[in-house]
Amino acid sequence: MNLTRTLIIGNSGSGKSWLAQRLAEQLRVPWTDLDRIHWLSDEHSIARPRNEALGMARIAADEERWLIEGVYGWIASELLSRATALIWLSLGDEDCVANIRRRETQDDERLVALLEWAGSYRKRDDSSGFAAHQRLFEGFTGSKIQLMDWKEITDFASEVGTIPIS
Rank of each mutant, 00 (worst) to 15 (best):
A61W: 00
D155S: 08
E43V: 11
G13H: 02
I153V: 10
A47S: 07
E116K: 14
R102N: 04
D155Y: 03
R82V: 02
G10I: 02
W74K: 01
E64N: 14
T105G: 13
D42E: 15
L34W: 00
V97Q: 04
D107W: 05
V160D: 07
T154V: 08
S120M: 04
Q134N: 13
D107G: 08
I75P: 07
E109T: 15
G73K: 12
R28N: 14
G73Q: 11
G70F: 06
L54I: 15
V160G: 07
L111V: 11
E64Q: 15
W66S: 00
K16R: 12
Q134F: 06
E152R: 06
S143W: 09
S81P: 02
Q134H: 14
R110E: 10
R124D: 01
I59V: 13
S128M: 08
H38G: 02
W18I: 06
L23V: 14
D149H: 06
I87T: 04
K144V: 12
T141R: 15
G55A: 05
A61R: 01
R110K: 10
E94G: 02
S166D: 15
E63C: 02
H38I: 03
L111I: 08
G161A: 11
D155C: 05
A83M: 13
L79H: 00
I46C: 02
R50P: 04
M56Q: 02
A132Q: 08
I75R: 13
F156T: 09
D126H: 08
L34Q: 07
E52Q: 14
F130K: 03
R102G: 01
G70M: 07
F156L: 12
I87C: 07
R122A: 07
E109I: 14
W66P: 00
D35P: 07
G15A: 10
L3W: 03
R103M: 12
S14G: 09
G92I: 01
E138I: 02
Q106C: 10
L3Y: 04
I37C: 05
E138Q: 06
L147S: 02
G139T: 09
P164A: 13
M56S: 01
W88V: 12
A157F: 15
P49D: 13
E43W: 13
T4M: 01
A76G: 12
Q146Y: 07
R122K: 13
D108A: 10
L114Q: 11
T4C: 03
A157D: 13
G70K: 04
